[in-house]
Design a protein around this nucleic acid. Sequence first.
DNA 1: TATTGTTATACTCTATAACTATA
DNA 2: TATAGTTATAGAGTATAACAATA
Lengths: 156, 156
Amino acid sequence: MGVKSNLAEEREQAEPPLLDSLIGYRLRRASNRMTSDFLVTVSPLALRPALFAMLEGIRTTPGIIQMALGTELGIQRANLVPLINELTGRGLVARRAAPNDRRALSLFLTAKGEELLDRAEKMVLEHEERTLAKLSKTERAKLLELLSKVATDVDA
Amino acid sequence: MGVKSNLAEEREQAEPPLLDSLIGYRLRRASNRMTSDFLVTVSPLALRPALFAMLEGIRTTPGIIQMALGTELGIQRANLVPLINELTGRGLVARRAAPNDRRALSLFLTAKGEELLDRAEKMVLEHEERTLAKLSKTERAKLLELLSKVATDVDA
DNA sequence: TATTGTTATACTCTATAACTATA
DNA sequence: TATAGTTATAGAGTATAACAATA
């Protein structure tokens, strides 16, 4: 209970900004920064993050139906439609009727889509390398692991 | 070079999805999930992430001018204007002419703004607790540390 | 009844250019 | 000439409701 100097009082009053301790906030800032760099990096191919993710999802599971792709990527099926239209319109993706369910549409990469995605992947890996230069391999693995624990319910 | 079983071949072909190893992608998914939960949690106060961050920024530095607040939060000054209008229109923030620069406007929380922010902070902390339940204290601290290394240039 | 794809619509945040008034 | 605030506008992603065709 001693007398305090002005400096000590100031130090007591100035609590550390709450924002800096909020993971949600820091997550948003980091994500925005990477998205911004992604857009610039991949702009020569006219691919945005959502389009790139969709191409990757189709490559991983050729013939996947729209509904399943949406679930996999966390994109509502209503929002998926115009994106797929964009990809088919550019000749990167083909829609075919699903064999067992006449409601569903299967998605495939065209040869052109495969080629573009190959080029995109190289750009994206460079983009990650550049934006994550401050992180070691171990730190990157740790970050991926921690991020996967954030998205709890559907993701895993 | 031995003969391979079909299973082994399949295992070789099925590479792990590239998306799962991309920090940018995982960051976006995790951020979206937390933003979504934030919106639901704080909706009783009609605060969105950007508005909450601005109130926090003003609380941390009372009298901060708009330009500085934008830089601090990574929000372009053009986008800041309608957000501040919203806050002043609701009586949460007051704009006053800055003493030394007649171009600049200083920002302060009103009593109503202080009260609302107090309530918002409690909600946000509960929101973080709920969405990050899978992470230990140590893991949360590590995640914050790693995230701060992603936003390189301006942030630090 | 439930599900798949679709359309329409609104909201949140971000980005750029150009203008004004001050500095 | 540079900066602070402002206006206008566009883009990217997300959310909800409702409908037709099919299961």
